[in-house]
């Protein structure tokens, strides 16, 4: 094999990579925050909700978990356009990512919520807490603490999977790479650079989730023990 690596394109295209990475961060942070909210709400409904709601949430989860993300993105992107709404590729991408990660979050949070003993809820009930207060103050945080590693892994996966949104030309990191490689014909090198940037992003996200975990789970931070 005689291949001359040429990373010269980096000299004047590195700001493009940076801009792409920044958009990836923006897209996925918004998607993670909204997806987490959606998934947590769905998980609560799935465990405590009306039987009809439980089924509805179950259906949503199964549909999303058993279809490809790319197809979901296309359906959102072209579906919204067909309905006559004009949304940017980025907005469509966020909507699709939220719907997607929301379903996975639902399943993960459901496992956490179901791991909270009934007796905890009963004790809170006996203290006079209302149902919503019980969920907010007694159930959710310990539930989240128990599934936090799975949850943060899922969110890192979402960040990586967001590369697929390049297919509807959301100008995120992978789309930027596609563009640069078609300009420079240094495909191999471009994707090596992109891989390294994704690796750095993953690392960044994991540190961020570790810090957030420390902020949220005060008991764990102080005692260092699992719940």
């Amino acid at each position: 094999m005689n291949y001359d690596f040429d990373f010269e394109f980096l000299a004047d295209r590195w700001p493009d990579f940076l801009a792409g990475a920044w958009l990836t961060i923006q897209l996925t942070v918004v998607a993670i925050v909204l997806g987490f909210a959606l998934g947590t709400l769905c998980a609560v409904l799935r465990v405590y909700g009306h039987p009809l709601l439980r089924r509805l949430v179950g259906g949503y989860v199964e549909i999303i978990r058993n279809t490809p993300l790319l197809v979901q993105i296309f359906i959102v992107y072209f579906g919204i356009a067909t309905l006559g709404l004009k949304l940017s590729a980025e907005t469509s991408a966020i909507i699709a990512l939220v719907i997607n990660v929301g379903a996975y979050t639902t399943e993960i949070m459901r496992a956490g919520i179901e791991s909270i003993p009934r007796t905890q809820i009963e004790a809170a009930d006996c203290l006079g807490l209302k149902r919503l207060q019980v969920i907010l103050h007694i159930v959710l945080l310990p539930a989240m603490e128990r599934v936090y590693p799975a949850l943060s892994s899922q969110f890192v996966l979402l960040m990586l999977a967001s590369s697929i949104t390049s297919q509807i030309s959301a100008e995120e990191l992978t789309a930027v790479a596609n563009l640069i490689q078609s300009d420079t014909y240094r495909s191999f090198e471009v994707y090596i650079v992109v891989a390294i940037v994704y690796l750095a992003l993953s690392f960044l996200y994991r540190i961020a989730f570790w810090l957030i975990g420390g902020l949220l789970f005060v008991r764990r931070r102080r005692l260092g023990t699992a719940l």
């Binding site: 807490l129 789970f217 008991r219």
Partner: peptide, 20 residues
């Protein structure tokens, strides 16, 4: 049935602040 994620004090004040 103490709440494991809350301090002893918060276990007690929870209902005082939220309910009462």
């Amino acid at each position: 049935n103490l709440f494991p994620h809350l301090t002893v004090e918060r276990n007690i004040t929870l209902a005082l602040t939220l309910v009462q």
